[in-house]
Design a protein around this nucleic acid. Structure first.
Lengths: 110, 110
DNA sequence: ATTATATGTAACCAAATGGTTGTATGTCAA
DNA sequence: TTGACATACAACCATTTGGTTACATATAAT
């Protein structure tokens, strides 16, 4: 089987405000393209393109239901983003951040 | 005084891999443009443009030192990114994330 | 069967992005 | 003061991005 070429990464995907809003509204519940489009002034086609980019970055999944295509949030890339960010936590002097780090370093402890 | 128009936000700024690498090398120590350029194959001018974008997003600060311009990391926008991300933590079932959330909700407790 | 709804996709476009080269200016060292 | 180094900036360019309209197809409802 050929690997799906992941054209977009999470960093590019969240760079656009429309796509961030899409993630926001999709996080709450599975939504169809039309329903999502109603939240924007731009065309449905434009929203579809944004969804394809989010999908390429692994941030959303979709399934067909009748004539609708329902999208839902996929959090794995966001978790990766979080771990990228966590490297920089040491650069702001924040007791909370350090405490988190301690927790992370011991996350095998149930 | 006129407000500096912040043309770029942190999301756009970190979307580019070159700019992420710049943040990475600058995080460790204050560096000049030439020194940073030596880490890339692209021209110094290109690196300068990336630095301007990072600066516009508030991710770096600079100061002149003789003929050099030294840049250093500014973490505030990354902290904002973290708080944006934290909203999504509830969507991955992760005991650690929930623990962190508890800590955050009680961060006034010294 | 016909119509309305939901989506897919191609073709097109303007503006933004990420790079280049060339030239000018400021500073340090010999 | 002359040359080398560090940066600034303008002009230019190809590609990508984010949008559009138009048309085709699939499913649901009457």
């Amino acid at each position: 089987m050929l690997e799906e070429t992941q054209k977009y990464d999470v960093f590019q995907a969240i760079a656009d405000p429309t796509r961030r809003k899409l993630l926001e509204i999709i996080a709450v519940e599975e939504l169809s393209i039309s329903t999502m489009s109603s939240h924007f002034t731009m065309s449905r086609t434009a929203v579809t393109k944004h969804l394809h980019i989010l999908e390429s970055a692994g941030l959303v999944n979709s399934r067909k239901s009748g004539r609708e295509k329902l999208y839902r949030l996929e959090t794995e890339p966001l978790q990766k983003l979080q771990s990228w960010l966590s490297i920089y936590e040491q650069y702001w002097d924040n007791k909370l951040a350090k405490l988190k780090k301690v927790i992370e370093d011991n996350q095998d402890v149930e």
